[in-house]
Design a protein around this nucleic acid. Structure first.
Lengths: 342, 342
DNA sequence: ATTTAGCACTCCATGAACCAGAGTGCTAAT
DNA sequence: ATTAGCACTCTGGTTCATGGAGTGCTAAAT
C-alpha cells in the first residue's frame, strides 16, 4: 500500500498540475513548503506511483502529470474539505438574494454564476416537469383567421402556440371546445395529457364540435413539440479559454456536442440522480468528453429528484472547489424550489 | 483604369481563393481553362493590381491573395449573377413548405437553413415588435400566494411572468385591476405601454385598489425586462470549422462576441435596413469581426422594415452564392410574414 | 533500513544551417 | 503588346548541435 509520504506526494502533484497545467519534477516538489524530503527520495516514490498508474510522464525524462487513475484516486481519497472563500460565498448569496420571480430565472442565474466562478461550462437540467400539472388552457383570437392557444401549468410555466382558425368555425364553437378541454384536462399532470386527450377528450369533442378533427390534430402536435427537459448553459466560451484545449479538432467535437447534442446531454443528466458525482476522462460515456471531467449534482425537493447541475471542464479541474461550490449551490436550489412551491 | 484582362484576373484570383483558401500564382492562373495568356503577362497585370491595393502577397515571393479592397471591388463590380443550384432552391422550398404555426419558428428554421447551406454562422433579428400591439392581459392564480401574468400581443406572441400575490389582496380586487389594465392598454403598441401605464393607468389603479403600488411596481419591472429584440442564431459551431480561423485567440474573441454580445449585434442589425449589405473585414465596426465578412439583408412587410437576416463568415466568403441565397430567403420571409398577418 | 548526494543518461525545445519548391521581377526577344 | 528566360527571394521542412530539466541508479550517509 501507499505510504503517507507517497499519498502526500501524489496530492502535491495533482494540486500543482491543477494549478499550473505543467508537469512537475522531483526537485520542484522537494522545494515545496511542507515537503521535507530530498528530490531523490521523492523520485523513488514517484517511480512507485507511476508503477501503480497514478501518475505519468509526458516523455522519458520530464516531470510527472496525474493520470486519469490519479485523478480518480485524488477525488476519492485525497480531497481536502474545501472552505469556500468569502468571495465565493458572497457571490452565491447575492445571486440568490436577488428576488427572482421565475424558477427558470433562478436556474439560469445559477448556471451563469457557476460558470463565472469556475471558468468552466455549466449545464443545468431544469426542474422536472413530470410532476407539474396543467392549470389552465385558453384560446385567444388574434384576428378572424388566427388564434393563440395558451397553456399554463401549476408551476407558472406558460407555453403557447398560435394557429389558423379552421374555416367555418365560429367563436361559440371554439369556446365550447376550450371549456371541454379545461374541464377534462385541468389538474392533469403534463405527462399524462396526451393519454387523456386520446382516452377521454377525443370522444367528447367529437360530439360537441364539427371540427374536432382539426382541433385534435392541433392539440396533438402542440403536445408533441413540448420537450419537458430544459437545459440551461452557462459560460459556453469558457472551454475555449482553458489552456488544456489547444487542439482545434478536440475543441470542434466538444463544441459541436454542446451546441447540438442537447438531447443527449439531457438524457445523461437525467441519469445522474445520486448526489454529487464525478466522471473523469474516459469514464465519460460521450466521445466528445473523453478529455474532460464532468461533475454532476442533483437538487431535490422533499426528497424527490428535481433537476441536476453539471460542470464540464478539463480533467485538470479544481475538484475541491468545484465540488464544494456545487454542494452549496444545489442546497440553495433546493431551498429556492421549496420556497417557490410554498 | 483596369483593363478587361486585369478585371478577369482579379476575378479569377478572388474566385480561386474563395474556393481553396490558398494563394494563387501566375502560373496557376495561366493554366486556368478560360485564361489564354502566359504567366509572364499575368505577372505584369498582377503587379499592377497589387499597386492598386486589390491583391496582396503573403510574402515577397508567393502567390497573391485578395486584399480587403479586392473583395470590396469584387463584390461591387465583379459579382456574376448566381443561379442557385437545384439543391439549394429545393432546400429552401422545403423549409418554407413545412407548415409552421409560429413566426418565431419560421425565423428559427430560416437561421438553421442558412447556416446549413453556407457553413457560416447565421443571425436573424426577429420581426420587430415595435408595431405590435398588446392584445390581452390576463392574470391567473396558481396558488393562494402566487399568480402568473400573461401578456399576449396581436402577433400571437406571448410573454409571461409569475409573481407573489401581495398579502391581503383578494381575488376580486385583482380582477378589477386586470380589467382596468385591459380596458386601458389593449390595442396599445407595446412600445408605448410603459408610457401609458404611467400617464393613465397609474391614477386609475390608485382609485380602485389598495395595492396599486405593488401592482404597478410589478408591471413596470415586467415591461422593463421585456427585450423586444430577439436574435436567432444558426450554426454557431460553423465558425470553428472554417480553415480561416486557426488562430485560437481570434476564435476566442469572435466566439465571446457571439455568445455574450447579443445586444450589440442586435443594435448593429437594427441599423442595417437597406436591402442587401456587405461589410468586409475592417469595414465592420465590431473589433471581433475585423477578419470577417458580414452580410445583412432585411425583410419587410408592406414596405416597412420587419427584421434582418445576417451571415457571419470569413472575408473569404462565397459572396455570390450567399447573396443570392439571402435574397431568396428574405423574399420568402417577407411572404411568410405577410401570409401570417393575412 | 531509510534517506540523500552524485552522476550518467534521455529527451525536449530552441535555433542555426541547409535544401527544394514555388513564385516573383526584370530584361530581352518575339 | 506579349512571352520566354533567368536570377533572386521567401517559405517550409529537415537535419544537426546545444543547453536545460528531469530521471534512474549506485553508493554514501544517517
Amino acid at each position: 500500500m501507499l505510504t503517507e509520504r507517497q499519498l502526500r506526494i501524489l496530492q502535491v502533484i495533482v494540486d500543482d498540475f491543477i494549478e499550473t497545467a505543467q508537469p512537475i519534477g522531483s526537485r520542484a516538489i522537494s522545494n515545496k513548503q511542507d515537503v521535507a524530503y530530498s528530490a531523490a527520495t521523492i523520485r523513488n516514490d514517484m517511480a512507485e506511483l507511476e508503477q501503480l498508474g497514478l501518475i505519468e510522464k509526458t516523455h522519458t525524462s520530464s516531470g510527472r502529470v496525474p493520470s486519469e487513475r490519479g485523478y480518480r484516486f485524488y477525488v476519492d481519497h485525497l480531497l481536502t474539505p474545501f472552505h469556500l472563500t468569502r468571495q465565493d460565498t458572497s457571490a452565491i448569496k447575492q445571486t440568490f438574494s436577488a428576488n427572482m420571480r421565475e424558477m427558470e430565472e433562478v436556474v439560469q442565474q445559477s448556471a451563469a454564476l457557476l460558470s463565472e466562478l469556475t471558468n468552466y461550462t455549466s449545464i443545468i437540467l431544469g426542474p422536472e416537469m413530470l410532476e407539474t400539472k396543467l392549470k389552465h388552457i385558453q384560446i385567444l383570437n388574434l384576428s378572424d383567421f388566427s388564434a393563440v392557444m395558451i397553456l399554463v401549468t401549476d408551476t407558472g410555466h406558460v407555453e403557447h402556440r398560435s394557429f389558423r382558425i379552421p374555416d367555418g368555425m365560429d367563436h361559440a364553437e371554439m369556446e365550447k371546445a376550450v371549456n371541454i378541454l379545461n374541464d377534462r384536462l385541468a389538474g392533469v399532470p403534463l405527462m399524462m395529457v396526451p393519454g387523456r386527450l386520446k382516452a377521454e377528450v377525443q370522444e367528447l369533442l367529437k360530439q360537441h364540435t364539427a371540427h374536432y378533427e382539426t382541433i385534435f390534430a392541433y392539440l396533438r402536435s402542440f403536445m408533441e413539440t413540448q420537450q419537458p427537459l430544459k437545459l440551461y448553459f452557462g459560460g459556453k466560451t469558457n472551454i475555449l479559454m482553458q489552456p488544456d484545449f489547444q487542439d482545434l479538432n478536440k475543441l470542434r467535437t466538444l463544441y459541436t456536442m454542446i451546441e447540438e447534442e442537447g438531447e443527449t446531454i439531457a438524457q445523461l443528466l437525467k441519469g445522474e440522480q445520486n448526489g454529487l458525482h464525478v466522471s473523469i476522462g474516459t469514464e465519460n460515456k460521450l466521445d466528445a468528453m473523453q478529455d474532460c471531467s464532468f461533475v454532476t449534482a442533483s437538487y431535490t425537493a422533499d426528497g424527490t429528484h428535481m433537476g441536476t447541475v453539471a460542470l464540464l471542464g478539463p480533467t485538470r479541474m479544481e475538484y475541491s472547489r468545484v465540488m464544494s461550490l456545487m454542494h452549496v449551490l444545489t442546497g440553495k436550489l433546493t431551498n429556492a424550489y421549496q420556497d417557490w412551491q410554498k
